[in-house]
Computed example of a mutant assay.
Amino acid sequence: MMRGVVPPRLVALTLAGLAAFWSAGPAGAQVEQLCAVDLNGNGDAADTGETASCTATQEGNWLCPLQATRCTVGETGDYACPLGNQYACQTTVEGEAPLCSPNACTAVEGGGVTDTPVTDDPGVTPDGAVDEAGNCLDHIQIFSGRALRCRTAGLKTAFSNCCRDRGKIVKDGTGSSLTSLSTKITVAKGVFSGMSAAFSAFKAGQTAGQAASAGAKAFIGGIDPTSIAISLAINFMIEFLLSGCDQQDMEVGMLEGSGMCHWVGGYCSSKILGICVQRSQGHCCFNTKLGRIIQEQGRPQLKSFNSIGWGSPEQPYCRGFTPEEFQALDFSRMDLSEYYSELEARAQADIQINMKDKIDGYMQSVSP
């Protein structure tokens, strides 16, 4: 078996287990009303315990359980809210004293919940004119990136931190700055396509085994074993499937942990009645670590990037250099030690692996 290649059967078994998990259905019923409160005073309600499902009341309304207080009987015998008369006393359990809450509820599907649209950046596509040898004759972008976002722990991610560093999964390489700009980004998409295929097949009524086979075929077909640590990718995929993270979260997780993304900034991506319940981070992700480093150190040298920089966290500006801009860069002013040190470490590891293979081969040849 080739080094680094995971047998299709292993991937199929992994996806079969995931399909069985999916068959159990969602963890809970759909929430009808939500409320959110900044309990710790940090400016948002994205932390655990700061959002809650509202409770239906006997009066036909909804009550937020956050900071809810039991109503007291007044001198007239009527219930009154100790938080203030502006808050209504409502009965959640028949026969028990009513409760009141200073926090409002809103329908999940209503205008009370707002989401910042996710930037769907396909990156640079090779759709220009080419010559007979396949060389681009149109507008060339060198070391182009793709705008992506990941979400930190919050309501939309089931309080999972989808931006957490999970280590280096995508293997780096110098790559061709002109012809293979999207190679490593495509690798990240390929992992997601495998689990998506399994999930789609399972939802369509196929058995867990059939769904797993569909996923394994898509997974292996979209992955170059020399470009990715497949065993890590499978573990990574499982972790993401069991969380509230989506495709962009996963792509950023793979590329950021591999040193291929530039962090642009954080922003609020979901609000309930104006209160932030989910924060996200905007990134520019590149095909290689070298591309990210040259972009970070080359942009400050060019006037064309002075006004816009890296864009905004909601809409990162990730375009590549034009040939004229690239020729104008002064590489003597760039610190590429981060990249060189990794090349040296990788060379040492390759030497050790090569020596081990030769020793193992010799021992096998002389063994009786």
Rank of each mutant, 00 (worst) to 15 (best):
S269A: 08
Q281W: 03
I294M: 12
Q248R: 06
G291M: 14
G259N: 03
T322Y: 01
Q281T: 09
I293C: 05
F305S: 10
L302Q: 13
I293F: 05
W310P: 00
C318L: 11
G309V: 07
V264A: 06
G320P: 05
I275K: 13
V264E: 01
V264I: 15
S280Q: 03
E256I: 05
D249A: 12
R292Q: 14
W310M: 14
R299K: 12
S269T: 09
D249H: 05
Q278W: 01
D246F: 10
K289W: 08
S280R: 00
C318Y: 01
K303W: 10
T288A: 13
R292Y: 06
K271F: 05
R319T: 08
L273G: 14
S269L: 02
L290D: 07
F286V: 11
S270H: 13
P316F: 06
N287L: 10
N306C: 04
Y267I: 08
C261D: 01
Q301T: 07
R299D: 00
P300K: 08
H283S: 08
M260K: 14
F286H: 12
H283F: 15
P300N: 11
P313S: 09
I272A: 08
D249W: 06
Q278S: 05
C268N: 08
C276I: 09
C285D: 04
M260P: 00
I275M: 15
K271T: 13
P300R: 11
N287M: 10
C268W: 02
Q295L: 15
G282T: 02
G309Y: 01
G265V: 07
C285S: 13
S307W: 06
G253R: 00
E314I: 01
C245D: 01
F286G: 02
V264P: 00
K271H: 10
W263P: 04
C245H: 02
P323G: 10
G309H: 03
